[in-house]
Amino acid sequence: MSDDHVYMTLAEGHEDDTRWAYGTGFEDPLQGVDTDVPDGVDAQELAALCVTLADDALVSAQRLAEWTTRAPELEEEVALANIGLDLLGQARLLYSRAGQVDGTGRGEDAYAYFRDAGEFRNVRLAELPNGDFAFSIVRLLVFSSWRLAHFERLAAHRDPVLAAIAAKGVKELAYHRQYAAEWAVRLGDGTEESHRRTRRALEQVAPYLGELFTAYDVRDEVVAVLSQVTEAAGLPMPVYRPLPGSGRAGEHTEHLAPLLAELQGVARAHPEATW
């Protein structure tokens, strides 16, 4: 066998490996991970938490992927796609963990492709349309700061699998936040037009901030980061007021269903297909 390259091994016809191209044959991303739930951890609560965190990541990843071929520069397109890929990876691990512990034995695809909008538990901030580049950057800044603060705490969760997923995610999210923060400063401190658009973006995300701060004690950390960035950017801090409803209760904006239609279309048209 002359496999100088791993991909070549795929073409060499191992009987239990029927994949035909790179990226096909997705398998359980938690393969071989100890699946036990520790004593004292409520399996249903753990599963619900994993689904919630996965939904945030999956919906965000889909929005980030929409920038592909539309970003202002190739470098930004690559950056946004990479950030989306990290989040998609987090979602896959979290859905798999949920399926292990909620008693249904569902795989990641069941959660991602075969639930309707009302069953998704992501925060509404994640599903809002991309808007302009300033809005996407401001949304990413808020989202990654919030998720990072949350994951720092989850790294000490009593479930070792969730804790490990979170500990890994912290490193990735720190890069995401850094990217968004640097762009927010550049835009806020840039031209009159970029300043105006970034300021408007802050006003647009403001109503969705309350939803992020209800369930977990991460508010102070996120507010500190937002203050640091807005000060460096010469922008005002967003003033948030609560918006009725909650994505966490399955109450979404009108934007989620079309997003899911695109995300789920192929899988639903060919439910038996493997790739």
Partner: peptide, 29 residues
């Protein structure tokens, strides 16, 4: 990285190499 798409290829690569080297039972964790 969590989203590293190469993970599945790494698993397949290790399993295939070991099988070719005469280890019929391989488990990847």
């Amino acid at each position: 990285y969590s989203g590293c798409p190469a993970m599945a290829e790494m698993r397949a690569g290790v399993a295939a190499r070991l099988k070719d080297a005469g280890y019929p039972r391989v488990e990847i964790r």
